[in-house]
Design a protein around this nucleic acid. Structure first.
Length: 938
RNA sequence: GCGGGUAUGGCGGAAUUGGCAGACGCGCUAGACUUAGGAUCUAGUGUCCCAGACGUGCAGGUUCAACUCCUGUUACCCGCACCA
């Protein structure tokens, strides 16, 4: 076994002493390549296997690009503000900075031990005043441009952490960190106006090479929906309120309105009689945490306010309820409810006995020209004693159906149905159960040779007794009355109308799809899309509504009542005005405290009595004592790497123009709607101001998958016995082995289980390579036997690295090594190139062999990446398969210049093929040149 | 419930535009070298009723040919979740 510990230490020292990986940022002579990792939070625990995976991937790409002649920027830094350091400070009374710096030292040591090619002279720390000066400065610009605002709004308040949280920091009603309960609370807060960026963020997604799932998550998070705002007047007052709806076409079906319990109008419109009930309900809702509020959504609750709203399209007065199924924070905090065509409204209406008006008919069947129209019924009779349904079996004429019939003029659906049941089956003692909707059905009647478009009303009856009269129609071989079970119906009733009828009658529900409008005056006969369009026009003409776009994304709550973050560069002056610090007052440095704990829900900086007092240039006031969220610094750090020591600007514009955007960004998928959205917002903003040269900061994004424990179980706190410490692997197997193994495990994006035996396999390969280079096979002679596999390997490794398919690149290198082992001569040119191909994955061992065996003086890191010659890849002679009726029966050797006829001749001549086509007729022979021959016989 | 993804030997996983399913590694079996082997090298390794048949979650379809395309379906993973 080669001495990996010694070799790895030797070359790490060499790289550091020679500043091998220092990027000359001003060297514009070569094309640039900016490859970035998501920087870690320097916690007390060390790097885990997942970090190594992502960091190795970028390391490989950066090393290959460097060898391909790019000027590569591959920096690393620390997201060093955050909660664990804060908690350490609270518990020990020590400044969190010391704790943070110690962790950073450990992390840096660990990262170096894995051999990553970071340019450490570019390192940034978000908690460094030199860095956060510019975080504060960008915030200041956002404030001056009106995007950062100090407003009163409902926030996520976590009592346990003593701070507000952003929406992405709340998971299932609990804090992301610690899992403490989170409640809604109204507070005056610093926020960033995210909805202002919604459109540009959506548009930008089209330009970038990101995983579709992540883009989709961002789209959902932004949550654009196009609809209409409709203004309702409150009956007998001059008050109005707006609702947002995506289905203004169903306005004629609105039978009530709902306001969120917190809606500002609720107190003003509630009638005396309802006041007590409304107050009680509001209090009940306020007490609930977000978790309880969403958890208790199985059953709808609500209270009538006593007030009525006037539906602008028909001047009907409809009741106004309050219910927590309407959220104060979305849309206008009030809705129009259309129970016939919305699931939630349907559920609420059923519970509170509110009328349901159908305004949209589902359409079944296919429309046809020259249809006759009529009204009809589908009667479904249920016998609860036998648990069977009454059907008519029309045998050949039309299969099994329920009882159907045409309504005569002036005949209502129920009497028609009762009449038809009697006429066709003789049963007379039936009770109506439901009759709530209509279906629009197109069909062709064979017996009449006509196309029909009918409006059908399905009705459910229950059989009360077996009482019967003689039916008008006698049963015969064409027609029989049968009671059957639900299973038989599911199987045998195929008619679309009858199936739909049965489905709706058994499970009444809202019809949310498309259809034909009814009961809707000027919309009647239109489909959904047409009706929405028409209704918006009508609303605008009558000044009671308009087209409206709504976003789910809300203000980004930007202040935390914590210590370990960037202080807000804000002062509240004595006259109540807000003052933002001058540039020369930045950075506003975080003061040392005696006590890092907040008291009574107040920020820890409240303890900095002197620091708080502001008296500068004749302005007196009090500083804001909140700090920025963890995602502030990480929203722009990628630009600071380019120019980390600049004291005049956050980064030199000329450098930014050359280096941005990040060409490849690799990190975990957990930041999909946090960091990755915030960064885009800041970058879009800076781009609009001309301070960033590109709109989108990260051109290509890839997420590495999770590395699981050996049993496929997530590593971590719950199962520490399965946790793998990558540094143990470095010590016991070598950094090169760790890197090779993690890259060979499987596709970068996939989750994959750890295998100790796999680690040993990786080490075995490296040792095999090492021994190969110690052998006397390396020679100045050439070896044509290796030409093809060599060029194939160069091509595949280059392509696969480019596509981040490291597992298959490694597999190809193994194929190459296996091939060399079978040969006596390993040409030194190939031996050189192979080290270069393997270098990005295993930098130490390859650098060692490059110098000690191949005799190079200079580092391998800047050697020219090998190229392949296409000539060796085209195969003059190829073995292809011959199939007979799609089954492989033989393989034949064909030459590049063989014509299809010659190939066919060879195929037919193969022994095993002859046997399989003997005494059969050849229907045709398919020859795909260079691929396969298929002989079809009969 | 909605959105996205995955499913291939004992295991991790390969398979350009549909064209010899199982590359490569792990594990396993046998042999060589050895005092020895948990080192190394060589050969083998999808299943079965083995001149053949079957086989990429399940059921269909398209095609000369399907892991790959189409329809339906199941299981698991991730995200969102009363968003009007």
């Amino acid at each position: 076994m080669y001495n990996f510990n010694k070799i790895e230490a030797k070359w790490r020292k060499y790289w550091e002493e020679n500043q091998t990986f220092k990027t000359d940022i001003w060297d514009f002579s070569k094309p640039k390549y900016y490859v970035l990792d998501m920087f870690p939070y320097p916690s007390g625990v060390s790097l885990h296997a997942g970090h190594i995976e992502g960091y190795t991937a970028t390391d490989i790409v950066s090393r290959m690009k460097r060898m391909q002649g790019y000027n590569v920027l591959h920096p690393m830094g620390y997201d060093s503000f955050g909660l664990p350091a804060e908690q350490y400070a609270v518990q020990t009374g020590n400044n969190p900075n010391g704790f943070t710096q110690r962790n950073i030292e450990t992390f840096t040591e660990q990262l170096k031990s894995v051999g990553f090619d970071y340019d450490w002279t570019k390192m940034v720390q978000t908690s460094d005043p030199k860095f956060y000066k510019w975080t504060q400065w960008i915030f200041k610009q956002l404030y001056l441009d009106g995007y950062a605002k100090y407003i009163n709004m409902p926030v996520n308040w976590c009592e346990e952490l003593g701070t507000v949280l952003a929406n992405d920091e709340v998971i299932d009603g609990k804090s992301e960190r610690g899992g403490y309960p989170v409640v809604r609370k109204n507070m005056k807060q610093w926020v960033i106006d995210q909805p202002a960026f919604a459109e540009t963020l959506l548009a930008g997604l089209e330009e970038i090479d990101w995983p579709e799932s992540t883009k989709e998550m961002q789209r959902n998070w932004i949550g654009k929906s196009i609809g209409a705002q409709v203004t309702f007047q409150i009956k007998d007052t001059d008050k109005t309120f707006n609702v947002f709806t995506t289905r203004c076409d169903t306005l004629f079906g609105a039978t009530y309105c709902v306001m969120a319990p917190e809606h500002e109008l609720v107190d003003q419109i509630t009638t005396k009689e309802q006041q007590a009930a409304v107050k009680a309900y509001q209090q009940e809702c306020a007490k609930k945490s977000d978790l309880e509020r969403t958890d208790l959504n199985k059953d709808k609750t609500g209270v009538f306010t006593g007030a009525y709203a006037i539906n602008p399209v028909n001047n009907q007065a409809i009741p106004i309820y309050i219910s927590d199924y309407v959220l104060a924070s979305y849309g206008t905090g009030a809705i129009m409810a259309v129970p016939a065509h919305d699931d939630r409204d349907f559920e609420f209406a059923m519970k509170f006995n509110i009328p349901i008006i159908q305004v949209l008919e589902e359409v079944t069947g296919t429309p046809h020209e020259n249809e006759c129209t009529k009204n009809s019924i589908v009667a479904i009779v249920y016998d609860p004693k036998e648990e069977k349904y009454l059907t008519i079996n029309w045998h050949e004429q039309g299969g099994r159906l329920f009882i159907g019939g045409t309504r005569k003029e002036n005949e209502d659906a129920v009497s028609c149905a009762i009449h038809e049941i009697k006429e066709e089956t003789g049963y007379v003692d039936v009770k109506l159960i439901t009759e709530d909707f209509k279906i629009n059905h197109h069909y062709y009647a064979y017996n009449k040779d006509k196309y029909f478009n009918i409006e059908a009303t399905p009705l459910l009856f229950e059989l009360q007794s077996d009482q019967k009269v003689a039916p008008e129609l006698e049963e015969d071989e064409k027609f029989s009355v049968e009671w059957v079970s639900k299973e038989v119906i599911d199987k045998e009733i195929t008619d679309e109308l009858h199936r739909k009828s049965f489905e709706y009658v058994l499970h009444p529900m809202a019809m949310c799809g498309d259809g034909i409008h009814i009961n809707s005056e000027f919309l009647n006969g239109m489909n959904k899309e047409e009706a929405i369009h028409t209704m918006i026009q009508w609303l605008e003409e009558h000044h009671c509504g308009k087209k409206q776009v709504n976003y789910r994304i809300r203000e980004w709550i930007f202040a935390r009542q914590r210590y370990w973050g960037e202080p807000m560069p804000i002062v509240y002056l004595e006259d109540g005005k807000i003052h933002v610090l001058d540039d020369d007052e930045l950075p506003l440095i975080l003061p040392e405290l005696d006590d890092y704990k907040g008291h009574n829900g107040k920020a820890p900086l409240e303890n900095a009595i002197e620091w708080k007092q502001y008296d500068h240039n004749g302005l007196k006031g009090v500083r804001d004592t909140s700090t920025m969220p963890g995602s502030a610094g990480s929203s722009w750090y990628y630009m600071r790497y380019i120019d980390p020591d600049n004291e005049e600007v956050f980064a030199n514009p000329e450098l930014l123009k050359h280096w941005m955007p990040v060409d490849l960004y690799i990190g975990g998928p957990e930041h999909a709607v946090g960091h990755l959205l915030y960064s885009r917002i800041w970058n879009h903003y800076l781009y609009d101001k001309g301070l960033s040269p590109v709109k989108e900061p990260f051109q290509k994004l890839v997420h590495q998958g999770m590395i699981l424990g050996a049993n496929g179980i997530k590593m971590g706190k719950r199962y520490p016995e399965y946790a793998i410490d990558p540094l143990d692997i470095v010590k016991n197997y070598g950094a090169d082995t760790l890197r090779l193994y993690e890259m060979f495990m499987g596709p970068l994006e996939a989750s994959k289980p750890w295998s100790q035996q796999g680690v040993e396999g990786a080490q075995r390969f490296l040792d095999r390579v090492y021994r190969l280079y110690q052998s006397d096979k390396i020679s100045e002679q050439s070896n044509p036997n290796l030409d093809k596999v060599y060029h194939q390997t160069v091509k595949k490794v280059t392509d696969d690295f480019e596509n981040l398919s490291f597992n298959t690149a490694i597999s190809q290198m193994m194929v190459f090594v296996n091939a060399v082992y079978k040969e006596d001569i390993f040409p030194s040119a190939y031996a050189d190139s192979f080290l270069q191909l393997l270098n990005p994955i295993a930098p130490h061992i390859t650098e060692e062999l490059w110098h000690t065996v191949m005799g190079h003086e200079e580092t391998i890191a800047y050697s020219k990446w090998p190229t392949y010659d296409e000539r060796y890849l085209v195969e003059t002679e190829k073995t292809i398969a011959v199939q007979v009726n799609g089954k492989v029966r033989a393989t034949i050797t064909v030459l590049e210049e063989d014509s299809n006829e010659e190939i066919e001749k060879k195929a037919l001549a193969a022994e095993n093929v002859k046997r399989h086509i003997a005494d059969k007729e050849i229907v045709k022979v398919i020859v795909i040149k260079g691929k396969i021959v298929n002989i079809v016989v009969k």
